[in-house]
């Protein structure tokens, strides 16, 4: 606060002495829209809920650990209740027996919420094309970002998080999805 006041005084002095009509408040505030401000805040505060069912979970642990440091993107903090989370990671194969559970978890999350399909089984069923497996978790819940790979490299996951952040920037506070 003191720093801002000092800057304001300095700007005022400069404006008076140079005789310019520069607004003294110019360097102190960033004008924005409320929607953009909310989206900016949301994209750096992703609280994730890992729905881990299969071997991709190992890779998810690798991504979540310090070496890849998803906290740089504000997406490191896992919540183990879907009611506290706004990003659902579907990690691994989803079978038909589990489909009602995944939908319940998704419905328990509060809006605004996003979903990342992690690994090729969650994206499309992968090489499981049979009676047991759901061919892609997007047949149960809407998915925002698909990360392919069996399992995906951590770099691919980070790129997926960045892609989701770009998508969140476009999010409308009215709840309408683009």
């Amino acid at each position: 606060m003191e720093k801002r006041t000092a800057q304001l005084e300095l700007n005022t002095v400069i404006a008076r002495e140079q005789g310019s009509n520069k607004n003294p408040l110019q360097d102190l505030y960033v004008p924005t829209k409320i929607e953009e401000f909310f989206n900016w805040a949301r994209k750096y505060s992703l609280w994730t809920y890992p729905f881990v069912t299969a071997c991709c979970g190992m890779e998810f642990m690798s991504v979540s650990s310090a070496h890849y440091d998803t906290d740089r993107f504000g997406a490191a903090l896992p919540r183990f209740s879907p009611r506290q989370a706004d990003l659902l990671f579907v990690v691994g194969t989803i079978v038909h027996k589990q489909a009602p559970i995944l939908r319940t978890v998704y419905e328990q999350m509060c809006d605004p919420k996003w979903v990342i399909a992690f690994g090729v089984c969650a994206v499309s069923g992968g090489f499981y094309q049979n009676y047991a497996t759901v061919a892609g978790c997007d047949r149960i819940i809407p998915v925002d970002v698909y990360i392919p790979g069996c399992p995906p490299r951590p770099e691919a996951v980070l790129e997926g998080i960045i892609a989701l952040q770009k998508k969140i920037e476009q999010y409308h506070t009215t709840g309408k999805r683009e």
Binding site: P100, D138, R139, I140
Partner: peptide
């Protein structure tokens, strides 16, 4: 038939 699925819930159209 191997791809004969029997979903428990209604699946979305993708």
């Amino acid at each position: 038939y191997i791809r004969d699925e029997q979903p428990l819930i209604g699946l979305r159209e993708v």
